[in-house]
Amino acid sequence: MSKNKKMYNRNIIVAGLILFIALITFPVWNYYVFSGETSTAPEIKLSEKAKAAKECVRSKEYMKTEHMQLLDVWRDTVVREAKRVYVSPNGKSYNMSLSSGDNSCLGCHVDKAEFCDKCHNYASVSPYCWDCHIDPKEKK
């Protein structure tokens, strides 16, 4: 179409294109210039108690992707229907509680920072669990 013709408004268009490239490549130069933080996914550290128990209320794969919905359902069941017992598909019963006592999520996964926050921070998830609940360890 246009061979070796001159560009009109050259300065402003070149400036615009440089801005465009800067925006598109933002994650790359942001990493190399400013962040440089390790980009690999964090490893979850299981507590001794969790290791001993071998399995959670559901399978690891299920918990990995669905734990938030499970907890959401638990909350509604406890708060609205006052039912506190969860029966998992393999027949075991569990106490539905996030943070109170030894027989709760945090009773087994004792270290919130190592177990919850690591991945949540990595994936920029800020669950509002902690608007109401407190980490039992922080209480002391």
């Binding site: 994650p27 790359v28 190399y32 980009s39 690999t40 996914a41 990595y122 994936a123 998830v125």
Partner: peptide, 15 residues
């Protein structure tokens, strides 16, 4: 999907 895995792959592209 495994969101943490997704982020690791995305960061792989970026880095």
């Amino acid at each position: 999907v495994d969101v943490v895995g997704v982020k690791e792959m995305a960061m792989g592209l970026v880095t």
